[in-house]
Design a protein around this nucleic acid. Structure first.
Lengths: 109, 109
DNA sequence: GGACTGTCTCGACGTCCATCGAATCAGACG
DNA sequence: CGTCTGATTCGATGGACGTCGAGACAGTCC
């Protein structure tokens, strides 16, 4: 997913087309489990982390974790790669930076 | 809503309690209409904007806009103040900054 | 090939959400 | 006080979402 706009939200009005593209990314972050998943992925030492290390960190079934990972994938927030038996996830820093830039506001006066 | 945590997502794993508090704010941003509403509010010249200026910008009924504004309010992203006949909304920069900080990642190597 | 493990897909279920029309509330103005 | 306008709340409805169990798929190891 390419993010077409990245001017801060408070600088000028976000156009409808940009909002339609950006909102799904925020929506994907709008679940506590996905927020933790993304954090675990983004903060992984080696830059990637195995699903087998993600799943046991929650009181949820495998399919549910898989569903949340798919949501993060479809939102363009993470990438997945299968290597042998295991699947590894890594964060996509570009879109994270753009979302952060969008929310950036001028420092308090 | 006080946000208890603001270390970047990629620095260390977001604890479950923090995720439970943060996720609703992102969820509120996860709708194109609300994203545009917040942008219109945050980018208002005078720092605030009247509902009467917000509603006609969308192909939605008054109650629907009101519902979205309530969602933004309950997420702690905006404040509302009634002055006479009209209600004015303004952004809460603090929480926006914290959300931006959470998403901040190190610059590309 | 066959069995086993890790991951994902599918179908189902209950809940939450975006939207609307109708009704209600809050101020302003005769 | 009565009416008018702006904004919100209420109730209903159709669709989306989070979760699960069962089953399917991918790779490994014997």
């Amino acid at each position: 997913m390419d993010v077409p706009c990245c001017l801060p939200l408070a600088e000028r009005r976000v156009p409808a087309e940009a909002a339609a593209v950006l909102a799904p990314a925020f929506k994907a972050l709008g679940d506590p489990v996905r927020l933790q998943l993304l954090s675990m992925i983004a903060s992984a030492e080696s830059g990637e982390i195995c699903v087998c290390d993600l799943t046991p960190a929650f009181d949820l079934t495998g399919p549910t974790i898989s569903h949340h990972l798919r949501t993060l994938r479809e939102a363009g927030l993470v990438d997945a790669e299968r290597r042998g038996t295991w699947v590894y996830y890594r964060a996509r820093p570009g879109i994270l930076r753009q979302l952060a830039a969008l929310l950036t506001v001028a420092p308090a006066t």
